[in-house]
Design a protein around this nucleic acid. Structure first.
Lengths: 147, 147
DNA sequence: AAATTTGCTTGCATATTGCAAGTGTAAAGA
DNA sequence: TCTTTACACTTGCAATATGCAAGCAAATTT
């Protein structure tokens, strides 16, 4: 259980209160770029998140309306996590981090193709990707509405 | 003392390893937008960082070459912290966070003017601001070179 | 010479993280 | 049907990080 404390009215501070940790943006990244959508999917990611931390981050993201829990079409045992528009709109932030990292850090070769594409036409890329994510978003309905 | 562990080759993950916490970006924000440059300045910020945390974050930022320690022109008792180009190039990330926060969070009225300006002409704003920060950057010389 | 400013460090209580193991329900296999 | 297995967590506990208050040394001011 995390507290929804607001340290100030600063937009950066408020934003960091929501996703300013080492894991939240990685979950969103997985959902945006790797079509991951279940608890098990997130556990498989390279960084190796602990199960309890994943649970707590998913809860935080849901509380902050960045993700929604859906019933999985394949099985009742599974839970399908979906990005909200609020999270999709973090794409520009995530893209800018990519560009910065590309400039200053040593990054894995497999992501360089995407970054190259972004560098060519950033706005076009963001718009296209946003549209695509929105399409995925509107595909199913939430179970949390049933409560 | 923080460890420089890299969880993966992902640009987001690597970036979060550097500034993915609740304080680092706030220090950079203070240096970018409020001309803060000393330890005492950072302590005065609205969010209320603890002295030991501030010291540890400044050290981390320096280790990651986002800031440099300079001797303060006014006094030997003071230390002047300065942004590097690497940190200045985080401006687009910070701007995008502002835009996202403006859309989804309740933010203080005093920052709305700046956001409005950004929304009008983002690229122009970023370029102008970057130039200005760079000008400030090239004004003094580092003391860490003396070691 | 004494008091104050400045930039930290130190000690300690509390909170968060990470790891390993366990739990409950649903689905799949025998 | 009975038994595994899959899945999404929860729990306990050790390790680490954070937050608060106090302390401290060097530089500056009074």
């Amino acid at each position: 259980m995390e507290k929804l404390k607001k340290r100030s009215g600063c937009p950066i501070s408020c934003s960091l209160d929501i996703f300013g940790d080492k894991w939240s943006l990685l979950i969103i990244r997985d959902m945006m770029f790797s079509q991951k959508s279940t608890y098990g999917d997130f556990l498989k990611s390279a960084e190796g998140i602990a199960t309890n931390i994943l649970a707590s981050r998913l809860q935080g993201l849901e509380e902050n309306k960045l993700i929604e829990k859906l019933e999985h079409p394949d099985s009742k045992a599974k839970v399908l996590y979906k990005l909200t528009q609020k999270a999709i709109d973090l794409l520009p932030v995530i893209i800018e981090i990519h560009l910065w990292a590309d400039k200053y850090l040593a990054i894995a070769p497999e992501v360089k193709a995407m970054i190259k594409e972004v560098k060519k036409e950033k706005d076009v890329y963001v718009k296209r990707m946003t549209k695509e994510l929105k399409k995925q978003m509107t595909a199913e309905t939430a179970i949390s509405n049933k409560n």
